[in-house]
Design a protein around this nucleic acid. Structure first.
Length: 581
RNA sequence: GCGCCCGUAGCUCAGCUGGAUAGAGCGACGGCCUCCGGAGCCGUAGGUCAGAGGUUCGAAUCCUCUCGGGCGUGCCA
């Protein structure tokens, strides 16, 4: 992959390979796309591998023959220690001192990709969390929240201008239903005492009542019409009050998760922008009447279901507001990408949204990108994994999960590190991180199996495991009682035995790029596990503080760099790295 | 019915967009501190990459079909 040329070492390799190819009489332009440097399957082969398959085609030679020629043509220099051919592959090894100097130096200088990149012209809008505030905020809502939060940090790190947007569901029928429930059964005192839980009660109560009394939905629809009329009426005041209460309630989980937004603009924000959006759709000539509703047909794009923009009763829908939001964002931010971190079950919705924009020949259509993720499943009666049914009232509130995790961490600290200062604060950090890490560990699209045992596991591939590596590194730096030595005074040849750590660190650039390109924070989660693993292994065999001065200094610099990079990587996930735990 | 997603070790997952002998964690079993943090380290066992075709010098990865699981399928979000 071309993106591997993110370090000076790779650029150097790339140039040497091209020069060698030219010397072998292969045209540079023809050769360049075939120069794909990547990590070898097995690191025993070397640090970087080049499969000579494509190049062989350009050179009209057999791959093993060309690989052999390249291996002899590229002689070692102050960066390349050795070049060897193994069948159709050319394997390169970096000079250990050059490797160490490059990686450690770049990390310490916070040079990109290890530190933040310079600003690019990328503008990324990320729509995440976006809870429907008339529904309980439970474990299922955490995914969009933490994935989006991480993507926001990742794109910032890469130099993009990022707008993190909480597109609150504070409009539409769900809100009207909540309003109706409150008007029927509501109690102000209970609402203020525990808004989230109380609204969950109301939500369940509405569901039950609507079953017995189907007319209730009609009542809710009437309230919504009244709200959407724009008049200053009871519905409007009720909406304001419930919205305020909900927002306050959501702030709790957001604070604990360390999640922030640049804009909190709910669906209601687009209330006065929908007319303009509808006009634009009409002008584009794509709006049609169907069974009393106003729709856009997308059959020519392979989508059978029309996108309904106005219901037969004249009110608007989710689609209408999302469309208005796209136009607003286009005008306000000029985004190159608009990411919607929303569950996979809403794929059709975003296909339709994008489809309507395409049909309108709006350039912004290309920027619209659904970032789907899997469901949260719970273990059902028969031991089968099934969808969480908040309707049935078995929702697990996020706070409960976080509290459980924090409490368990607290007992572990009491047992393993009883003298730890600020133990409660550290327990909060580590416990919450464990839950977040667990959610960001697997690929987005995988369903998350909610299981207390794995949720509260702190050994192996977990957040605490990575944080523990940070804590060990910090501990060594503390005990050194001297500042980290300056880079230019280091004999990097002393770090020959740290090659695995260094090579892992060097992967960071491609990992972050991939995380951004594919909207996949798990790439970074896996990186932190890999690096933490190498660190734990390294520290076991290589003592720092007791080593002779030249070795000690070199290792101290390495420890510092590893700690910094691990901290940066965790930060991109929205996870703190405590110095002690 | 149609559309989309998933299927890799007992369990939970990686596998860097087609490359070399498919890797981790948990669980099981066996080891490791007179030494900077044992939330750790090292090792053993465990695989028809759901199945069958196809493309390719080369397939867990791309294409087709089959099976299994899930999600979605005009006036909810």
């Amino acid at each position: 992959m071309q993106t591997l040329r993110v370090t000076r070492l790779h650029r150097h390799l790339h140039d040497r390979v091209l020069a060698a190819l030219e010397a072998l009489g292969i045209d540079r332009a023809a050769a360049e796309p075939g120069v794909r440097l990547g990590p070898p399957k097995n690191r025993d082969h070397g640090d970087v591998a080049l499969g000579a398959f494509q190049l062989a085609k350009a050179a009209k030679k057999a791959p093993p023959a060309l690989a052999g020629e390249l291996a002899t043509a590229i002689t070692p220099d102050d960066v390349i220690e050795s070049v060897s051919a193994a069948g159709p592959f050319v394997n390169f090894r970096f000079q250990r001192a050059a490797l160490a100097q490059e990686v450690v130096g770049a990390v310490q200088n916070e040079a990109a990709p290890y530190g933040p990149a310079e600003s690019t012209d990328q503008v990324v809008c990320i729509d995440y969390s976006s809870p429907n505030i008339a529904k309980p905020f439970h474990i299922g809502h955490m995914r969009s929240t933490v994935i989006g939060n991480s993507l926001r940090r990742i794109h910032r790190h890469l130099g993009a201008t990022v707008h993190g947007i909480n597109h609150l569901g504070d409009w539409g029928m769900p809100f009207a239903k909540m309003m109706t429930a409150y008007m029927r059964f509501g109690n102000e005192e209970q609402l203020h005492a525990s808004p989230m839980r109380y609204m969950f009660e109301l939500y369940k109560r509405y569901g039950k009542a609507a079953e017995a009394e189907p007319a209730l939905d009609e009542e809710a629809a009437a309230h919504f019409r009244a709200l959407e009329s724009g008049e200053d009426n009871e519905e409007r005041r009720m909406w304001q009050m419930l919205r305020d209460e909900s927002l306050k309630a959501f702030q709790g989980p957001y604070d604990r998760l360390g999640v922030t937004f640049d804009h909190i603009t709910g669906e209601s924000f687009f209330e006065d922008k929908m007319a303009g959006a509808m006009e634009r759709v009409t002008k584009a000539g794509v709006l049609e009447e169907s069974d009393g509703a106003e729709v856009v047909w997308l059959k020519e794009q392979g989508i059978k279901q029309p996108c309904i923009l106005r219901k037969s009763d004249g009110t608007t829908l989710y689609h209408t507001r999302d469309l208005a939001a796209v136009f607003y964002r286009e005008q306000t931010f000029s985004p190159t990408r608009i990411l919607y971190v929303v569950g996979a079950e809403q794929k059709l919705h975003f296909d339709q949204l994008k489809g309507v924009l395409k049909k309108m020949k709006e350039g912004i259509a290309d920027a619209v990108e659904h970032v789907p993720f899997g469901l949260v499943l719970s273990r059902g009666e028969a031991g089968k994994w099934e969808k969480f049914a908040s309707r049935a009232g078995n929702a697990v509130f996020l706070d409960e999960i976080l509290d459980e995790a924090v409490a368990k961490v607290r007992t572990i600290i009491a047992e393993k590190n009883p003298d730890l200062p600020d133990a409660d604060a550290v327990a909060e950090q580590v416990g919450v991180s464990a839950i977040v890490f667990n959610d960001l560990k697997a690929s987005r699209i995988k369903d998350v199996k909610f299981d207390w045992d794995s949720m509260l596991a702190f050994e192996g591939d977990t957040g605490p495991y990575v944080q523990y590596a940070c804590a060990r590194l910090s501990s060594i730096l503390r005990k050194a009682e001297t500042p980290v030595p300056a880079i230019d005074a280091i004999d990097f040849a002393q770090l020959v035995d740290a090659e695995r750590v260094l090579l892992t660190m060097m992967d960071f650039g491609t990992v972050v790029q991939r995380a951004a390109d594919q909207s996949e924070p798990s790439a970074i989660t896996n990186f932190t596990l890999a690096l933490a693993g190498e660190i734990h292994s390294y520290l076991r065999e290589h003592h720092v503080l007791g080593a002779e001065p030249a070795v000690r200094d070199a290792r101290l610099v390495l420890v510092d760099a590893a700690r910094r990079l691990l901290t940066t990587a965790l930060d991109l996930l929205g996870i703190p790295a405590p110095g002690q735990m």
